[in-house]
Design a protein around this nucleic acid. Sequence first.
DNA 1: CTCACTATAATTGCATACAATCTAATTGTG
DNA 2: CACAATTAGATTGTATGCAATTATAGTGAG
Lengths: 141, 141
Amino acid sequence: MNDKYDSLLLKNQLCFPLYAVSKEIISMYKPYLDPLGLTYTQYITMMVLWEHDNIMVKTLGERLFLDSGTLTPVLKKLEAHNYITRKRGTENERNVYINLTQVGLALKDKALEVPKQIAQCLDISPDDAKKLYKILYKILD
Amino acid sequence: MNDKYDSLLLKNQLCFPLYAVSKEIISMYKPYLDPLGLTYTQYITMMVLWEHDNIMVKTLGERLFLDSGTLTPVLKKLEAHNYITRKRGTENERNVYINLTQVGLALKDKALEVPKQIAQCLDISPDDAKKLYKILYKILD
DNA sequence: CTCACTATAATTGCATACAATCTAATTGTG
DNA sequence: CACAATTAGATTGTATGCAATTATAGTGAG
């Protein structure tokens, strides 16, 4: 009923459903983010900036669990869209500060619809959502 | 205490911790998969094949939630490593069947260590793990 | 039987992710 | 002060992921 290879069955993995659900939910964002001209990664980047403007790339990376190798190209695209600006710090030339433009700030109001739409698509009970959230942050910390 | 933009706070998202935890755990696999010459995507592909050999790319894609655009390059790499073979079906030329080589099959024994090591690194209670697993599969189905 | 339709992979283009390396700036130490 | 060590970003290389398109092979309605 149980052999030595059971631990290698896909259905006995915890990481795989995490990976699959993560991708599936991110793909649900696409139709709602496309009108805003944002990808999912760009969206969560904007979310951090909407909460706290004028932050360093390093801080952004810590909040999003992303390194400069990922963030630099993302930020350059957001800058090309005129949603943000990138400026070297005067006190310390190593630091790059990200700031929202008027356009980027204005996008916040349009983005309000996104979480609403996703909540409707996502078929999960409030109880499960709460449990899931808690367990995930327990792992992250 | 509560403003109209609360729904856009990173900490109020359910998808973000899913995405972050998924990435963090996948990165934990790297030191254990490197000696096997596998990436995480290649590893879960091999897991499906270890469970059921001689399956079509389409079936593999359904199990892994990946499309041919992702799988074709992954499978070509596994073929280049001599872990698998790819053969067009004789009954239906559209189908491509994937089979393990002797080397690929032998890798299964070495891979047995991987889930053991990951379980040790992953600091999560059995109860939380069970809850998490159930909720994730509820979403996937 | 034929031709539109469908199905399966492969290909192409774009956007991440991350390891490793590099550059420039800053800091700590003797 | 001099200089090794550290830090912040950028760059490079490799490997996904996914949408859209293409190529080829089967299928089915008339």
